[in-house]
Simulated assay, not measured.
Amino acid sequence: MMYIMLFMMVMLSIAFITLLERKLLGYMQLRKGPNKIMFMGLIQPLSDGVKLFLKENNLGFNMSGGLFMCFPLLLFFLMGSMWFVFSYVYMHYWVYEMLVVVMLSGLSVYGVLGMGWSSNANYALMGSYRSVVQTVSYEVCLVFVLMSVMFMSGGYSLGNFEGTIKNSIWLMVFCWGLMVLWVLVMMAELNRAPFDFVEGESELVSGFNVEYGGLNFALIFLAEYGNMIFFSYLSVLMFFQVEMMMLVVFLMSIIWVRGTFPRYRYDSLMSLTWKRVLPLILLMFYVIFMVMLMM
């Protein structure tokens, strides 16, 4: 019952995060954003959701029908499974939550690759290839950052984060570089701007989801924003006090980055991860490991 309530709260949060994003981007671009439906467009996400779920799903002649429909459901299932590690006083059933998070985030690659392949479209396949290369590249950095924080917390459980890293001043003062690298890697892992090459409109139209619409597109959309909220919660848990206001500020900063920074070039993205980010993270990981051994 608690998991059902959690799932409903996540779906409700996704709806209003999309409204917040459209409003913030609108004001950053000197326009209003959604403001027609009800008071200041308050139920605009409900209207958009109903429209997407009632829209007809078209299947082309070249598409692999069954797989084409299943892969968006797989992404949505992985997003929902990731929220099962949510650490709450009545819902703390997992022991190695961080290992589960790493495993589920890695499995999402297969869903994106499958969507591009089952679409049998050149732009969709190219977008899925980009996603696989980008996600695998930054997955290595993501794992080393999580391992560094796990060393400092003393375990693989989110409960350790809440206990030993509750005093976040130590992390903020001595490991601010680790936090900056984590935010950078997280943005690339979530395919958020300025690393949203999977949906590069100028060269790929809309990436791997160019052939999707209606219910399937809604599932992809929910999976993307559900992962964004989860990783924001994880970031706040690792580096800040676990407070709702801090989570909202972190989400707003992700939206601010989308409206501020231009998209990277793809070769610059690959150079950034293998030549700059990964060596820095390995150096920090080694220093933290040696310090923890001497303590």
Rank of each mutant, 00 (worst) to 15 (best):
Asp267Asn: 15
Leu222Glu: 10
Leu234Ser: 07
Phe239Gln: 03
Leu158Thr: 14
Gly154Gln: 06
Phe261Met: 02
Val102Lys: 08
Val50Asp: 15
Asn227Trp: 06
Ser271Gly: 10
Phe86Val: 12
Leu171Asp: 08
Ile169Lys: 12
Asn122Ser: 14
Gly159Ile: 04
Gly154Leu: 03
Ala15Gln: 02
Met79Phe: 04
Leu75Tyr: 07
Gly259Asn: 10
Met28Cys: 01
Met292Gln: 11
Val85Arg: 14
Gly226Ser: 05
His92Cys: 13
Gly163Ile: 10
Met295Phe: 07
Leu181Gln: 04
Met290Ser: 09
Met103Asn: 11
Val10Leu: 09
Met82Gly: 02
Gly159Ala: 13
Leu247Thr: 02
Asn209Thr: 12
Phe285Leu: 14
Leu78Thr: 07
Thr260Asn: 06
Leu158His: 10
Thr135Ala: 02
Asn216Lys: 14
Gly213Trp: 13
Met290Thr: 07
Phe53Met: 11
Ser202His: 06
Gly41Asp: 11
Asp267Ser: 04
Leu20His: 01
Leu67Gly: 05
Ser153Asn: 14
Ile17Phe: 08
Lys55Cys: 04
Leu222Gln: 09
Leu178Met: 14
Gln134Val: 10
Met98Gln: 13
Val10Phe: 01
Lys51Phe: 05
Ile254Asp: 00
Ala188Trp: 04
Leu272Val: 11
Leu215Gln: 13
Val95Asp: 09
Val205Gln: 15
Val242Gly: 00
Tyr233Pro: 00
Met38Val: 13
Gly66Ile: 10
Leu204Ala: 04
Val132Tyr: 11
Gly213Ile: 06
Ala121Leu: 05
Glu211Ala: 00
Phe289His: 13
Leu178Tyr: 14
Gly207His: 05
Gln241Met: 06
Phe76Lys: 15
Val173Lys: 13
Leu6Ile: 08
Thr164Cys: 03
Thr135Arg: 14
Leu25Lys: 11
Ala15Val: 01
Val10Ala: 00
Ser206His: 15
Cys70Thr: 09
Leu181Met: 05
Leu20Tyr: 07
Val50His: 12
Trp94Met: 07
Val180Met: 09
Val145Asp: 07
Ala121Ser: 15
Ser118Phe: 02
Val145Cys: 05
Leu30Cys: 01
Leu190Val: 02
Phe239Cys: 01
Tyr88Thr: 03
Leu24Gly: 02
Gly259Cys: 04
Met8Cys: 12
Asn62Asp: 11
Cys70Gln: 15
Leu234Gly: 04
Glu211Gln: 12
Leu219Met: 10
Ser271Phe: 07
Phe217His: 10
